[in-house]
Simulated assay, not measured.
Amino acid sequence: MTQQPSAAELAQVRAAVQDLARHAFELTGRVAAELTTALETEATPRRSHLGAVERLVQPVLGDPAHPVQGAGFVAAVGLLEDAAYWLEWFAADAEGRVQRLVTHSEPQGIGFYDYESLPWYVVPRDSGHPHVTGPYVDYLCTEEYTLTFTTPITTGGRFAGVVGADIAVPRAEQLLLPPLCAARARLAVVNDDGRILSSNSGHHVCGDLLPEGWRTSGSAHAIEGLPLSVVTMAD
């Protein structure tokens, strides 16, 4: 018989996931607020008007205690006068140094990074709400499983882009595994597609997909405000 978690165990896992999201969304919220104000004062925004991004994210990325390892702004296509596509993005390297991410922003160029169809951009653009994407393999930055938290911004009633923050799954698990492993039941944190973020079982690892019907099995416990759930796994 499958061991069921107690209400207290579920609450502790939920709280850990929500705390993880809080770290990311507090940063994206601050950047979004200041960047919105800066862009609204410019009739023709340019890359030079995005200085608030580096100023706000650099102290966070340089703090080894903070789980966010990459953050920045991804402009709506056509927003900036001097770049149709643009990522104002920064990341901490293995030594903790904050580096600007350099991408190919010209559609005709080799290696052009077209973000218009990616869920971390599309979902907040279309919904108008913050979103969590992942876990997915971030081939652009780290080549490891990552969670991306994005917050949309608008200027003059027009979608202007998203502010995002990346948390690598290994770093996320440092916060999630203690309450998961304290539970007697086998538990996993999964996204809305049924893809596992983290679990307390070696049989269920990050990236695995749950079988269809997991939502209606009675073992899924949604995490309020996030596209994530805690799921009781069969023994």
Rank of each mutant, 00 (worst) to 15 (best):
L79R: 10
R46S: 15
F90Y: 15
A83L: 10
W89K: 11
E95N: 02
R97Q: 15
V53K: 04
R46L: 13
V74I: 15
H49I: 09
L56I: 05
H49V: 04
G70W: 08
R47A: 08
D63M: 01
V77K: 14
A91I: 08
G51L: 01
Y85C: 12
W89M: 07
G70F: 06
R47Q: 14
L80A: 07
H49T: 12
Q99N: 08
R55H: 05
L50V: 11
F73V: 08
A91S: 11
R55G: 02
L50D: 00
R100G: 06
E88I: 11
S105H: 03
Q69E: 12
R97S: 10
R100H: 12
E88D: 15
G96T: 10
V77L: 09
V57L: 02
G62W: 02
H66Y: 10
P107T: 03
A94T: 13
V77W: 10
E106F: 01
G62I: 10
L79Y: 08
E95C: 08
A94N: 13
T103H: 02
V77C: 13
P64C: 09
D63N: 05
A84I: 09
S105K: 02
L87A: 06
H66T: 02
Y85I: 07
R46D: 12
E81W: 07
G51K: 10
A92S: 12
R55N: 00
A83I: 10
L101Y: 12
Q99C: 00
H49W: 01
G96H: 06
G78H: 15
V60N: 04
F90C: 11
L50I: 13
D82F: 12
P107K: 00
S105D: 13
P59A: 06
V57D: 07
V102W: 14
A71I: 05
A75P: 00
S105W: 00
E95T: 14
D93Q: 05
V102C: 00
A65K: 15
S48H: 11
E88R: 06
V60R: 05
D93T: 04
P107M: 07
H104I: 04
A94C: 04
T103A: 15
L101P: 03
T103V: 11
A65H: 12
A76P: 05
F73E: 01
A91H: 15
A75C: 09
G62P: 05
H66Q: 06
L61P: 03
P64S: 03
G51E: 08
P64E: 09
E81A: 15
L101K: 01
L80M: 01
P107F: 05
A91C: 06
A83F: 07
V60S: 03
A92I: 04
H104D: 09
A92H: 10
A92N: 00
T103P: 08
E54R: 14
V98I: 05
G96P: 13
R97A: 14
Y85P: 01
E81G: 14
Y85E: 00
Q58S: 14
R55D: 01
V53Q: 01
F90N: 03
D63W: 10
H66I: 05
D63K: 01
G96K: 13
D93M: 10
L61Q: 00
H49P: 07
D63P: 07
R47V: 12
V53S: 05
R46W: 04
G70D: 09
A76N: 11
V60F: 01
V57N: 05
S48Q: 15
A94E: 15
Q69K: 14
S48A: 14
S48Y: 08
G62V: 05
A65D: 14
